[in-house]
Design a protein around this nucleic acid. Sequence first.
DNA 1: TTCTTAGAATCATATATGATATTTTAACAT
DNA 2: ATGTTAAAATATCATATATGATTCTAAGAA
Lengths: 258, 258
Amino acid sequence: MKMHNANHAPSVERALDVIGLLAGSENPMSLAEILAKLSIPRQSLIRILNTLCDRGVVERTGQRGFYRLGMKLLYFGDRLQDKIKLRSIGRPLMRDLAEKTRKTVELSTLDRDQLILIEQVEGSEGIRLYSRVGSAYPYFHAVAAGKIYLADMTPEKRHKALAAIGLPPVTEHTITDPDVLEEEIRRIQEKGYAFEDQELRAGVRRLVAPIYDHANRLAGCVGVAATIFSLEMDQQEDLAAQVIETAKRISHGMGRSR
Amino acid sequence: MKMHNANHAPSVERALDVIGLLAGSENPMSLAEILAKLSIPRQSLIRILNTLCDRGVVERTGQRGFYRLGMKLLYFGDRLQDKIKLRSIGRPLMRDLAEKTRKTVELSTLDRDQLILIEQVEGSEGIRLYSRVGSAYPYFHAVAAGKIYLADMTPEKRHKALAAIGLPPVTEHTITDPDVLEEEIRRIQEKGYAFEDQELRAGVRRLVAPIYDHANRLAGCVGVAATIFSLEMDQQEDLAAQVIETAKRISHGMGRSR
DNA sequence: TTCTTAGAATCATATATGATATTTTAACAT
DNA sequence: ATGTTAAAATATCATATATGATTCTAAGAA
């Protein structure tokens, strides 16, 4: 937990800590469990929980003293999604792509220097989803969408960003050699899409294309995620054409001229 | 805003007021706008906003002094959805139903005496969604899912609930006569599904069936929503069979024996 | 039934709050 | 391009109130 911060509301900080803890827990948590994880005095914690429960952001389970996330968060999350233009434009087109390819379609965008997954549509392959809506991808270099963003930067900016983080290996397939990454980025710029071959997660491949807005700025990325069994290397070119077409349609909806 | 409440955290109350206000606004709001709507001293509001912004729950737009909901709410909402068993079981089956019927499929459940929409799958008719995920339906008697819950109550409990609220008209089609509603409930109990004929919203029909859990308790409802043009009266029986089948499959996943 | 702990009540005080002053910033006018 | 202005954002400080420690009560698990 952070140090005292000027111009903050400490009680609100604590409330967000509680929500974050419950969000990360698979099961409802008891008061004692929450106390053990967060350094909040017991009575203060109870007051915060009372407040969050009365507002539906946290809910008490049938069992006394147990708490879980509340339905109000569904409402907030849904209202937020409706406000994101990229998502409302992209969603029907993603559904078309999911039907055609039968793969999971992902939409992501950069938000405060983080690459966030903002929507997913499952294809009829019924493959379990790979990442969670709202979560941030780690490490640009290991994610197809991240590589799109890297390819969109000037070389100076890119080198600076990569020098700050380095190229840590996520899986044994992750690109850790700067020269290999530069070659990859050149290929992306040339072909207009990025391919991720088990670099973020073993057994998972992604093929992703960039979306531009009315001012020709990179607004986000759309692509498909699948297992190595359902996305084989020789399908790449065909699939790329479909993904790029979807990205162009979304770009058009964002106001980009063709 | 509520009066001072013992064993609450007032700052957290205020923070939730801010989030709720931004959730209900179509556009980002300025500090002055928020100040005009909520009776929070300016300095206190700024501290709360600083805290929420640093945590990603609220975000500053490019324009100085403007605020909107932040992406962290996507994450929280998504984590909550994954925790709702009814949703994770129902979602793939809802998608099947949406493909077959081409209509919007809705999943709802009772949460703290409110009927909450917890998931929606759009059908390829591409009809604009009728209600928002996370939001509560008003008035049980005007909603197909609400009528399912009314039909599941003992007559005593139902009369008590309806006496407390009455049968206010929502549209000109809403049932406002207790005897008509009782007849409707008898039909629901007999046929195993509820039909909503423009009772909540003009031009909208719904057909909804109940989902039961391992203890044979009513766990939720699944159904389709459509316009009166795409859901005509003579389709009712055929569609009901499909909806009831989906509800039974979800019930089976919830542990109900057949 | 007993025991444990969540949850409420109480009260002194620590600190968060709110009022006020100052600084910063961006929008707008020239 | 420069200057002005309004309002966001920060800093300061006295004090109001929220907090935290402690005690008591209620509820539920074993």
